[in-house]
Each structure stands twice: as C-alpha cells, then as structure tokens.
C-alpha cells in the first residue's frame, strides 16, 4: 500500500486495471474492481466513472455477504447520484433480497430512489420514519408532486372557444388572455367593416387567413398555458421538496460504506 500512496489516482487505477486484466480468476477480478471503486470513494469521487466501474462488477462472483451488501449499498447511492434511477432500483431490489433492512438509512435511501415513481412504497416508508422523527413527514411532498395533475383541460379550451383568451387568463396568464381577446375583437370588427365596404375578397381572405389563424392560435395558446401552469406548479413544489429533503439529509446523512 506504500506503493499506492506514492502514486496519483490515475496511476493507482491503472495498476488495479492491469491486475484485473492479468487475473484469470473471476472472483479475484471482482475484488480488484471493488478496490478500484473503493479508491474512488476514498477520494470522495462519485461521478460517472465510478458508476461505470460499478456496472462492471458481476454480483454472482461476490461470495462474501458483507462485501456484497456494502457494494450494493454503494451501488444504489452512486446510481442515484448519477441520475441512473433504473440501475438504482435494480441494486435496491438486489440489496433487499440479500438483506432485509429496516434501518432508517435504508428507508431513506429507498425514498430517494423511488420518490418520483413508486408512491405507495414511498408513502409506507415515510409513515414508518415519521414515527421515529416528524421531520420525515415533510417528504410526503414528493407524492404530492407525482400525483399533481391539473384537471378539466376541456373546460379551459371551450371557454377560450366561446370567449377568446378567457381560458388563457384563467390559467394565470392574464395579459396573454386580454391580448387574445383584443386581437380577436379587432379582427372581427375589421372583417365586418370590409363586408360593409363591399371588399368581399378582402373579407374572405382576412377571415380565413388571419382571423382563423388568430382564433385557432388562441385555443392552442390556452392548451399550452394549461400545461405550462402545471409544469410551473410542479417545479415550485419540487424546489420546496428538495429543500426539505436537504434538511432531512443534513440531519440523517447517507454514508457510503468501505468495501
């Protein structure tokens, strides 16, 4: 180990990789990979390269239960940190199969991994953790985000079809709604005037070209603002929720385990 400490991280990684390459034994190979991962973790590196090393590990050749559980724990955490939720969920399932764990850290990690997908599991774990500390109750907001869906889109669309801009205004975009109404009113007034002056070609072309475009555009705008309002609301909830999560993690940090 004296030799390793004298080298840079890249050199040490290369040494391990060469040992991996030269090794003919699959079990030894996995152990070397674990050493590489451990080396990254001791330097507090958890980025994509560590995740790639984790993916190279063959679980079938990890015979020591403690090492395997520690590896899976780190694998869940690192996959989560690299936004690889599918992999995180896979490692989580493997970990649960290997070792039934009811610790606070494991429940918290499960909540992190499943916070935007499995609401029933997240709810169950939050309920359990809330019994220990009420700070966990705040994490219910993740379920609110997943379940949040604005309703009655058709109502807004029909409203805009009858009174142009009204649906858009009801979605919270008042200026755009008023502008839609003004444009439509102006177009209709203009077309009526054209007919009064006997400019029939102009009336037909302005109404089919410009008027119709404004009218359908106003309905499309209502639909866009409907979803935009939904996204905005979800983003606001996410910011508040992530802040709550940060507080929880400050109080109950999730630590990586030595391999």
């Amino acid at each position: 180990m004296v030799l390793l400490s004298q080298n840079t991280l890249s050199d040490s990684l290369l040494y391990y990789e060469y040992a991996y390459y030269k090794s003919n034994n699959d079990t030894s190979k996995q152990k070397i990979l674990l050493k590489k991962i451990d080396l990254y973790l001791t330097k507090n590196i958890t980025h994509r390269e560590v995740f790639n090393e984790i993916k190279r590990v063959n679980l079938n050749y990890l015979y020591d239960k403690k090492i395997k559980t520690n590896f899976l724990w780190n694998a869940i955490t690192i996959s989560y940190l690299n936004n690889e939720t599918d992999n995180a969920r896979y490692f989580l399932a493997e970990y649960s199969n290997l070792k039934p764990d009811s610790s606070m850290a494991f429940n918290l990690l499960s909540i992190l991994v499943n916070k935007y997908t499995d609401t029933s599991d997240v709810n169950k774990r939050i309920k359990y953790l809330s019994g220990i500390d009420t700070v966990f109750k705040g994490l219910n907001c993740f379920c609110d985000i997943v379940n949040y869906n604005r309703k009655h889109l058709n109502f807004y669309l029909i409203s805009s079809a009858i009174i142009p801009g009204s649906g858009t205004a009801m979605n919270g975009y008042i200026l755009e709604g008023v502008l839609s109404l003004a444009i439509m009113a102006g177009s209709v007034y203009g077309i009526i005037k054209l007919v009064q002056y006997g400019l029939y070609i102009n009336a037909v072309l302005w109404s089919t070209g410009v008027g119709l475009k404004f009218y359908t555009g106003n309905i499309k705008l209502t639909e866009q603002t409907f979803y935009k309002a939904e996204i905005n609301k979800k983003n606001k909830l996410t910011i508040i929720c992530e802040l709550k999560l940060k507080n929880v993690l400050n109080k109950y940090p999730i630590t990586l385990k030595a391999l």
Partner: peptide
C-alpha cells in the same frame, strides 16, 4: 490477497 496484489503491482512497475 493484499500481498498478491502488491506483488502484482511490483511486477507491473518493472
């Protein structure tokens, strides 16, 4: 295991 790894590194350096 540590020993065998270290000997590997040494061979590698050489």
């Amino acid at each position: 295991m540590k020993r065998s790894l270290n000997s590997f590194f040494l061979t590698f350096c050489i």
